[in-house]
Design a protein around this nucleic acid. Structure first.
Length: 303
DNA sequence: CGGCTTTGACCTGCGC
DNA sequence: GCGCAGGTCAAAGCCG
């Protein structure tokens, strides 16, 4: 039984065999946005609806990687991969690929706009690499230590440029610990890896985000919750769930329909990435930083 | 009954 | 050419 009947008529339209070129979004789909967040739930809530189509145990990581496809629109090319970080099981790594070709629930627009913006900038950033590099270097010193970093991994491991938004340090306050990307990453890849620090209290952008009242943190759970996000397009953030239910562990294989249920329910639990993404996506300073960073990365790879 | 998850099989690319 | 690993397919089963 297949629900992807639309895919049957168009054999594997969204299946990207390595080296393939997607017809609908030949360029945008190349951009990937990876979100790292501390999350106890099987997946983060980005407001979109996803359907799981596969799971795989990756080499070097005992945690299975789950593959999801956007189920809002049948032909939506957007996919995401969800995997726990081997170094810290509490860290959830969600990688988005592609751009939605349909309207999204307002809860999903933030993440979508972030990924879309990243994709767009990856495409357009190649022409302004030098200035972008300059811009990036003009960022605060501590902007080079963590949370948002761009990587342009080697073609054999990741053929697509990837932007990583690292929110794993958000929950910590005074004694935040920077996300420690493997020290050999940069040398291994041979590519520039720019890091933009959004975790430091001194971080310009983060400070703006946090200070703007967009997000706040629950000291007991260390999870951010929305404070006044309604003005940036959230319909249910900050509101208590009318009928909160227990989260189960669909990825670990128990309940059914739980992913989509979780996705819906998590919105009431203020999943950190959702909240942060909303805030970030609406923050012009982030966008400029992101643009500079992407441009820098593109420029670095072109030289 | 429809929608979704699970999971083994299959396909493809890449390194050796 | 072979083996490995990542990614996807698709049948089967479960749940509301």
């Amino acid at each position: 039984m297949r629900r992807d009947d639309n895919e049957v008529s168009q054999p594997r339209p969204s299946v990207k065999r390595a080296g393939d070129v997607e017809v609908s979004q030949p360029n945008v789909k190349r951009a990937r946005v990876s979100v790292r967040t501390k999350c106890d739930y099987p997946t983060i809530n980005d407001g979109c609806q996803w359907r799981k189509y596969g799971q795989k145990i990756s080499r070097g990581n005992p945690c299975p990687r789950s593959y999801y496809r956007c189920s809002v629109a049948p032909l939506c090319p957007v996919r995401k991969q969800v995997q726990r970080c081997v170094e810290d099981m509490s860290v959830l790594i969600t990688t988005y690929e592609g751009t939605h070709n349909h309207s999204l629930p307002i809860e999903a627009t933030a993440m979508a706009s972030t990924t879309s913006a990243a994709a767009s900038m990856l495409l357009s950033g190649s022409s302004s690499s030098q200035s972008a590099n300059k811009d990036l270097r003009n960022l605060p010193n501590n902007s080079k230590t963590t949370p948002l970093y761009l990587s342009n991994p080697p073609s054999n491991s990741n053929p697509f440029p990837t932007i990583t938004l690292d929110f794993t340090t958000f929950p910590t306050t005074s004694s935040f610990t920077s996300f420690n990307f493997p020290s050999n990453f940069q040398s291994n890849t041979g590519f520039l890896s720019n890091s933009l620090n959004f975790s430091s209290p001194e971080s310009d952008t983060l400070s703006k985000i946090l200070g703007s009242g967009y997000v706040d943190y629950d000291p007991t759970t260390s999870l951010p919750y929305s404070k006044s996000l309604t003005n940036i397009g959230s319909s249910n953030l900050g509101k208590p769930s009318p009928a909160p239910k227990q989260f189960d562990q669909p990825v670990l294989g128990k309940s059914k329909n739980s992913i989509s249920n979780n996705l819906k329910e998590e919105s009431s639990q203020q999943a950190p990435t959702e909240t942060l993404t909303k805030a970030i996506a609406s923050d012009p300073s982030f966008q400029s930083v992101l643009a500079a960073a992407i441009s820098s990365m593109v420029g670095a790879t072109k030289t």
